[in-house]
Structures are given as structure tokens and as C-alpha cells.
Write a protein that binds this DNA or RNA. Structure first.
Length: 940
DNA sequence: GGGATCACG
DNA sequence: GACGTACGTGATCCCA
């Protein structure tokens, strides 16, 4: 029976799944006999996830999972080298190929492979047949070789990335439509598969040529007309090779002896078959999860808990079970004191409650409370509306308080004792926000757990820590988007304008989801051995940061305003000069226009276009031009600096001054950076200028209150010190122990020159190498940074590794660790996950460098977090009144009465320099330097 | 809304 | 054999 138009056929690229599962997951072996099963586990999770996702309207009527039969296919008959250079599959993957086919069958899915053909050919054949019958076809794969099939009824989807690959995406990748993809592939070749193509021609050039000549045959016939001699020659000389390449990349959509289309009709998984397979594999989590969905007991004899290597919180654990129960219509709306008291009673019975606040703004310093939601168990949640308004809320239509709400004061009076009760655990997603809002209503929430931070401690780098991301990952549930309530753009309203009946399901759902997440994430702390990370470096930081943010920093508005005017004047002068030099007026702030002036109109050399087709005009480009004696780019550099300072700092900072406090209150994200660093937003006070003289004037506008000074303490070379410790580099450790100038010492070591009377240039180069090492050094990067030939950079690096072989060992070992366990660790046990570490090509290099950097940057971040948590109590104990205001990665800024400044500096220094203890004894001392002054520039 | 640019550690 | 690469962030501007 042929395919019918109402059919929907899913063709899963099983071989692609295998390699993804294998590389994405840490090695995992079966407990009982040590059999490697990591890829099987990943494969099962992926298939299960896919089947779960395929329940709605687009549920397929037919499904097949297709595999490569062997590494040889008919293509080797006419081109023996095809895929010949590919290494054998890794040793621990080979035994899993068969198990994965078993797994496919255990899911009751057809498992198809045809000798002499690749999976892609089989997919092409089924796709063509089904599409011919009018059916819809979805290919589940990310393989570029399948993209030639896209179009019409045939679509493609990359489930791992959640990305649909349509004609547009194909066009983006190959520069031509699907029907010409094989032409481009034939020209460009493929080194991974050993498809020769035309030497010297890549995808970009191939697409260009194909688009110009229409198709490959025409191009080859008219190759003589090509203007570029190299391309012309390459095409003429290699015409035959190119034709072979085309045969190699063209999928055969006429594979014979395939199981009939009918046999692909979708069959539901059968509990017994699937569960016994999973149980045999000893995948206890997945077994339990799926058993629950089937509503049966998991098979007995499921052996001991899963090994350590199972990733973090086991995304999706218990997920679907809970998800089925999320019913946003089942929540209660609390409208009077009696109802609220009943909830408080329930909370006391349980001892724990999820809390979420709804407010008028995302800025906690000005946000007003609109409502509070509570959840005491999965599905048991309520919403307490407190500040909802009726009416449009436009300037004329006076808003009125909506009916059916408790008085705010009454609700606060009832909630406060519970929220402050030490015996009741409050659970929130991003508690810092709620803590700050409630603090303004006289409530100081404690004790608490924070689901965002529970996830961050376990899953940093594995995906976001936002509520929506967590809910999707762990509960397989998409919460109501806030957009559906507030709208977007010009017509966006504030939460107090949302009708209570609409607000309640959203708000209560947030508390419900938070509670469910907590149930899943809290136990993961122990399993993942990150309890200390969470308890010492995440959770206690929340109230500390809340206090810092609430304190804010005083800023001299008039000084900023004067600077703004000053900058504006200078910019106007520069702009006139620039227009004069260009011979016409244009927007200096537009890189596009500037590029055209420089390279098209004025004909300067070195114009390089990026992927958007615009010339690059970054500072490095302009500096090169300026060095060649061009005035215009030099002026633009000056203009840009002023424009940046004015636009980002002197103008913008003034708008951030809080009307009530007269100070600037930033907000720190605790779970923003994957390495453990904080990030500062609204405004970002971690990137206030300091490197240029003009920029430092802006720091002068950050001042202390009357009678106070600003006190700054910063860690000296903390990352290099930690590198010396982590990589165990004796020479570096000694240099630090002796208090030497570390860059000079490094220079002396690698270049063999004495520190005395050292050429500053030599020291500068050593400094660049030192930083480079922290970043996962490459000759390219160092050459770029120092503006020296790459060969020289390579020599420097070689000399460096020669002197410090331990560094290379550290780098290799770190990448190895990342590949093996899927994460790297700081010295304090913070885990940074590296899910893409096995990516091929440039991405792989990127990921490797990030993995090398993460333990160093992350350990430094841990150190200062530990210090920050201890400083407030240390100050209190010493009866000092200083307030901690800002953190800039390795620096802390305090506002302190002038008379206490020195004693505060010593107290803080002691905490900072001992922040690693007692958890970790460092073999390199930590050193903090202090400075004070009326403003930040003086203190720094 | 994405890319280019540039401020910081 | 070519390509693209220093690590981590956030804000602003232009421009489609």
C-alpha cells in the first residue's frame, strides 16, 4: 500500500544518533559487568524524548530508524578512497552498535539497514516514495548530506538543537537551494568523507560559481570563461574528479529490497519489551521513568544506583510523570484572610513552601508588589492578588483597585511571620529578586532554597537556569509565557493591569513549577557532590548581593553631565574633521557607511568584508590604517572612544540614578556566567572604564557619601596564582612566594634575560603569554594580540612550554577530563559542563580553550565568592560599619567612614587572603592590595 | 532582533 | 588543505 497524503513519515538517522549520543555523554559502563553502554543510554534517552515529543498534531503515522550497514558502500566500487581514511570506531563504541539496534527494536520501532548502501540512501528512497504519494516526510538528522532532499513535502529537523532545517536553512549553509546542494558539494568536496572536489574551492566559492552558471554541468562546460585563473585551471584540470565527487555525494533514492512502507506504520512501545531491555542495560532512572508512564512497577532486580558519571540532575528525571499533572486551572485564588490562614496552616504542616512574587517591574528597587503565589506540593498552588488594577491605565483613565483582593497590609501581616520563620523553608526560583522586593515591605525571607542555584551548582554549562529552561528540561513542561499576559512592544502592560483570573494560573503555575523543580534538583546536590558549592558559594551569596544591590553606589550626576557635554563638544569637532577628510557627510557611527568611505571611496587597502557583506572596521583595522598614516581612521578611533564613553557611561549612568536613593543600584546575576563569575546588569558596573585617561574621569564620578571614603581591595594576579597551584608549576609558585614581578620573572625564564634592566617590550610579551595561557593559548591568538608574525608567536609559545612543561600537561589533562566526564572542576568542586567538547572543526577548538580556562577563571570566582560571604559577618564582628558596594571579578569596593577605613581594609584583606581556607590549601599565597579615596579612581 | 563594536576582568 | 581561534561578560548603536 503506497503512502497517502494524510500520512506523516518520520525517518530517523540512527547512525547520526549513535555518534551524537556517544560524544555528548560521559563514558558509562554497566555496573554488573563493565560493558560500555554510554551511547546506548544516550540513544535510548534521545529516542524516548523524541517519541514523547511526537504526541500532538504532528504525530507521525509511520516511523523508521535507519542505520549504516557497514562502512563500505557501492560508492567504494567506483571510488575506493571514499570514507577510507576514517578511523575505526572507538573501542568502547563498537560493542554498542548491536545493543543500539536492540534498543531500537525494544522501542517497537523498525530498525533498517541495507548492505551496500548508506543510511542516507535508504532515507532518500523512503522519502521519495512517501512524498510521491503525497505524504509528509520529516528526516530527523543534522547531517548535511541529507539536506539535498529538503523541499516540497520533505522537511528535516535536528532534534538535539531543536532546529528545523528547511529550504532557507539549506540555502544558508550551502548558498544554494537543496536542488543544487550536490553541485556545491561536488565542487567543495569533503575532507571528512574523502570526497575530492575541486582543489582550492570551498563551499563559498562553489556556491558563487553555481549561482553564476546555473548548474555544475554548465559550469564545467563553460569553465574556460572563468576570470580567476586559479579557479579556471582547477575546474578544467579536475573536471573528471568533480564528476566523480558528484556521484559520491548524490544519494541513491532507488534502493531495492527495502521493507515495505506499510511495515513502518507506527506501533506504540510495549511496556514489557521495553522495560526488560532497559532493565537489562541497568538504566535504572530511565526504567523507573518509563515504568511510571506505563503505570507499571519497574522490573525487579534493577541493580544498584547508577554510577557517578550519569550527568547532573538527570534531565527529565521524573519529568513526564509530573508534567502530566500540571493543570493550571486547578489553582486557588486567595481573596480573604481566612483562606490565607488556611494555607499558612498547611505550610506549617509541611515545613516547606515555594514562593513567587508578581510585581510591576523587573527592577526590584522600584517594583511594587502585585501578588504572591505559594505552592506546598506538586499541583497544590495558590495566588494571592494584592495590587491588581482595573481600567486601561492610560494617563487619563484613572485606574481603580480591582475587586476581590485582600488588603496588602493584612496579607503582609499574615505572611511575614511564616516567611521569616526559621522552621519553614522557603523555595524560590531566583530568590534574590523576591528577597529584595519583600525586603521593601519589611520582610526578610529566611531560610530558603533557590532552584536556579540548585541547577547552577549541578548543571552550569548544560543549558540555561531560567525557569522556562528548567521546566522544559526537568518537567518536560512549558509554563505559560509571560508575553501572553503582558503583550510586547509599545502595548506592553504591567502585571498589575492583568486581570486576576488570568494572572492567577500564570503566577500559581510558577510556584507549582518551582516546587516540582526543587523536588528534583535538591536531591541531586549529594549525588553530584556539589553540596558544598551550593551551600557555601551560591546560596549564602544571595542575601549578600541583595544587600550590596540595595545599598547602591553614589554617583556625582553633575560630574557626569559635565563630562557628557565635554565629550559631545569634542565629538562634534572630530565629526567635522572626519567629514572634511572624507569629502562628504556621513554617519560616523555607522560601520557600514564608514567602511564604504574608507575602502570604496578613498580606496584604502585591507578592506575585508564579513559575512554580512559589510567591511570590518573594528579598532584593529582602523589602527592599522592609522599607522599607515591615514588621518581619517585615527580621528574615527578618537570619536568612537568618546561616543562609547558618552553613550554607555556618562549619559546612560545618569538615567540609572534611583530617584529615591540618589544612587545607582546594579543587579548581579549569580547564575549568568558558566564559570561561576558574577555578571552585573542594569547598569553593568563591572565594565566602568579605567584603561584610558578619558575613561578614568568617569570613575571619578563614583564617590563616597559625606564623611566616607571608597575602599577598594583587589586580588593580585589571582588567576595566574591559581594556575601555578592547579598546574603545579614550581617556578611560578616560587616566583609568587618570593613576591617577584611575575611577568618579568616569566620573561627572564623563557627569554633567558635578567630581570634587572629588562626591556619593557620583553616583559610585555611575557605578560601576553601569561594571559594567553589562561585563555588556552594559540599561536594565532598571541600573534594577533602582540601584532607579531604567527611564526614568532609560535616560537614564544614553544619556548614557554619548554620551560613550563607542566602547563601543557595541565591543558591536555583538562581537555581529556572534559571529554571523559563531560565537565571540568574548579579547585572548590564547582563543575562547569562542556557538552560540546567533542565538536569538530573550529567549534572544537573553541570548546577546548573554554575548558582550559574554566577551572582557572572559575576557581578565582569561587575564591571571591567565599570572601564575599564571610566579609559582612567579619565586619560586624569587628564592629565596623563599612558597606560592601561592588564586585568586579577580582575587586571589592566598600563605602566606609573615613575613620574606619584602615581597620576595614585590614579586616577585609585578612578574609580575602584566607578565603580558600579551610576547603583548599593553596600552594601559592593569595594577595589582596588595598586603596582608598574620595572616588573610585583614587581608590583603585 | 542580530551583528558590530567596545567597555571591563 | 582551508578555515578560524585567544577566556568570560553587557550595553549601545545601526540596520534590515
Amino acid at each position: 500500500m503506497p503512502a497517502k497524503p494524510e500520512d506523516h513519515l518520520y525517518l530517523v538517522d540512527g547512525s547520526g544518533f549513535i555518534f551524537r549520543a556517544y560524544h555528548a555523554l560521559p563514558a558509562l559502563t554497566r555496573k554488573s559487568d563493565g560493558m560500555p553502554v554510554g551511547a546506548v543510554s544516550g540513544f535510548c534517552n534521545m529516542i524516548w524524548k523524541m517519541l514523547q515529543d511526537l504526541k500532538g498534531d504532528d504525530a507521525p503515522s509511520h516511523v523508521a530508524v535507519i542505520f549504516d550497514a557497514s562502512r563500505f558502500s557501492f560508492r567504494n566500487e567506483f571510488y575506493p578512497e571514499y570514507k577510507a581514511q576514517r578511523p575505526d570506531a572507538p573501542e568502547d563504541l563498537r560493542p554498542q552498535f548491536g545493543l543500539i539496534r536492540d534498543a531500537t527494536r525494544a522501542f517497537n520501532l523498525p530498525c533498517i539497514e541495507i548492505d551496500g548502501y548508506e543510511a542516507d540512501d535508504v532515507i532518500a528512497t523512503y522519502a521519495r516514495e512517501a512524498a510521491a504519494g503525497g505524504a509528509e516526510v520529516t528526516i530527523v538528522s543534522s547531517d548535511k548530506d541529507l539536506m539535498q532532499l529538503v523541499g516540497g513535502r520533505i522537511g528535516m529537523v535536528d532534534l538535539m538543537k531543536g532546529k528545523v532545517i528547511g529550504v532557507e536553512q539549506v540555502r544558508e549553509k550551502f548558498g544554494v537551494g537543496p536542488e543544487r546542494v550536490i553541485d556545491v558539494q561536488a565542487l567543495a568536496g569533503d575532507s571528512v568523507d574523502n570526497v575530492p572536489g575541486a582543489p582550492g574551492i570551498g563551499v563559498k566559492t562553489a556556491a558563487l560559481l553555481i549561482n553564476e552558471y546555473g548548474d555544475l554541468e554548465t559550469l564545467l562546460e563553460r569553465a574556460a570563461e572563468i576570470k580567476q585563473p586559479k579557479r579556471r585551471q582547477s575546474l578544467i584540470e579536475n573536471a573528471e574528479l568533480i564528476r566523480i565527487s558528484k556521484r559520491l555525494v548524490t544519494l541513491d533514492d532507488n534502493v531495492g529490497n527495502l521493507p515495505a512502507y506499510d511495515e513502518l506504520a507506527r506501533r506504540q512501545p510495549e511496556a514489557e519489551m521495553l522495560l526488560s531491555f532497559l532493565n537489562e542495560m541497568e538504566f535504572s532512572t530511565l526504567t523507573r521513568r518509563i515504568a511510571a508512564i506505563f503505570g507499571v512497577e519497574p522490573p525487579a532486580a534493577a541493580p544498584a544506583p547508577e554510577p557517578e558519571a550519569v550527568p547532573a540532575a538527570e534531565p527529565g528525571a521524573e519529568a513526564a510523570v509530573e508534567a502530566a499533572k500540571i493543570d493550571t486551572s486547578a489553582y486557588e485564588i486567595i481573596r480573604d484572610a481566612d483562606a490565607l490562614k488556611a494555607w499558612i496552616e498547611k505550610i506549617y504542616e509541611r515545613g516547606e513552601v515555594a514562593v513567587d512574587t508578581e510585581t510591576t517591574s523587573l527592577d526590584e528597587m522600584t517594583a511594587e508588589l502585585v501578588g504572591v503565589s505559594l505552592a506546598t506540593a506538586p499541583g497544590r498552588a495558590c495566588y494571592i492578588p494584592l495590587g491588581h488594577q482595573t481600567g486601561d491605565g492610560d494617563l487619563l483613565g484613572a485606574a481603580e483597585r480591582a475587586a476581590g483582593q485582600m488588603a496588602l497590609d493584612d496579607a503582609i501581616a499574615i505572611l511575614k511571620p511564616m516567611l521569616e520563620d526559621p522552621s519553614i523553608l522557603k523555595i524560590a526560583q531566583n530568590m534574590k529578586y523576591d528577597l529584595k522586593v519583600l525586603a521593601r515591605y519589611g520582610i526578610w525571607v529566611a531560610p530558603f532554597d533557590d532552584t536556579m542555584l540548585l541547577s547552577y551548582a549541578q548543571e552550569a554549562g548544560m543549558g540555561g537556569q531560567g525557569m522556562d529552561a528548567l521546566s522544559k528540561r526537568h518537567l518536560d513542561h512549558e509554563p505559560i509565557p509571560i508575553k501572553t499576559l503582558l503583550g510586547a512592544g509599545r502595548k506592553k502592560i504591567t502585571f498589575d493591569r492583568v486581570e486576576i483570573d488570568k494572572a492567577a494560573p500564570y503566577a500559581a503555575e510558577d510556584a507549582d513549577v518551582t516546587f516540582r523543580l526543587w523536588k528534583i534538583l535538591k536531591p541531586g546536590l549529594v549525588r553530584n557532590r556539589v553540596t558544598r558549592v551550593y551551600e557555601v558559594m551560591e546560596r549564602p551569596l544571595v542575601p549578600v548581593l541583595a544587600d550590596m544591590e540595595r545599598a547602591g553606589v553614589k554617583v556625582d550626576r553633575d560630574a557626569l553631565s559635565r563630562l557628557s557635554n565635554n565629550f559631545a563638544q569634542k565629538m562634534a569637532g572630530l565629526e567635522a574633521e572626519i567629514h572634511e577628510l572624507a569629502g562628504e557627510k556621513f554617519n560616523v557611527g555607522s560601520p557600514k557607511q564608514l567602511g564604504e568611505i574608507l575602502f570604496d571611496k578613498m580606496g584604502m587597502d585591507g578592506g575585508k568584508k564579513g559575512k554580512t557583506g559589510a567591511y570590518a572596521t573594528g579598532a584593529d583595522v582602523l589602527e592599522t590604517l592609522a599607522a599607515e598614516g591615514h588621518d581619517l581612521p585615527a580621528r574615527v578611533l578618537d570619536w568612537r572612544q568618546l561616543s562609547k564613553l558618552k553613550g554607555t557611561y556618562t549619559d546612560a549612568l545618569q538615567t540609572h540614578i534611583n530617584a529615591e536613593t540618589g544612587r545607582v543600584h546594579t543587579s548581579y546575576s549569580i547564575a549568568g556566567a558558566s564559570t561561576g563569575r558574577l555578571a552585573s546588569t542594569d547598569p553593568n558596573l563591572q565594565n566602568i572604564p579605567v584603561r584610558s585617561e578619558e575613561g578614568r574621569r568617569i570613575r571619578e564620578a563614583f564617590i563616597a557619601d559625606e564623611g566616607n571614603v571608597l575602599l577598594s581591595l583587589d586580588y593580585s594576579q589571582i588567576e595566574l596564582r591559581l594556575l601555578a597551584h592547579i598546574a603545579d608549576i614550581e617556578a611560578l609558585k616560587q616566583a609568587f612566594a618570593e613576591g617577584q614581578d611575575i611577568h618579568a620573572a616569566t620573561a627572564s625564564e623563557i627569554f633567558g634575560v635578567p630581570v634587572e634592566g629588562m626591556d619593557p617590550m620583553i616583559r610585555r610579551q611575557a605578560k601576553a603569554i601569561n594571559f594567553g595561557v589562561i585563555y588556552g593559548i594559540s599561536a594565532f591568538g598571541l600573534a594577533n594580540n602582540l601584532r607579531i608574525p604567527r611564526e614568532d608567536a609560535k616560537r614564544f609559545i614553544d619556548a614557554y612550554f619548554e620551560k613550563f612543561p607542566g602547563i601543557r600537561a595541565y591543558m591536555d589533562a583538562t581537555v581529556e577530563t572534559a571529554k571523559k566526564q563531560g565537565y571540568v572542576e574548579t579547585v572548590f568542586g564547582r563543575r562547569i559542563h562542556t557538552p560540546e567538547i567533542n565538536a569538530k572543526g573550529p567549534m572544537g577548538g573553541f570548546q577546548r580553550r573554554a575548558a582550559i580556562n574554566a577551572p582557572i577563571q572559575g576557581s578565582a570566582a569561587d575564591v571571591i565568592r567565599r570572601a564575599m560571604v564571610r566579609i559582612p559577618p567579619a565586619l560586624a564582628k569587628a564592629k565596623l560599619t563599612a558597606r560592601m558596594l561592588l564586585q568586579v571579578h577580582d575587586e571589592l569596593i566598600f563605602e566606609v567612614p573615613e575613620s574606619e577605613a584602615d581597620e576595614t581594609a585590614e579586616t577585609v584583606r585578612k578574609v580575602m587572603e584566607g578565603a580558600n581556607l579551610p576547603a583548599v590549601a593553596l600552594t601559592t599565597p593569595l594577595v589582596a592590595d588595598a586603596g582608598k579615596g574620595r572616588n573610585w579612581a583614587e581608590a583603585h
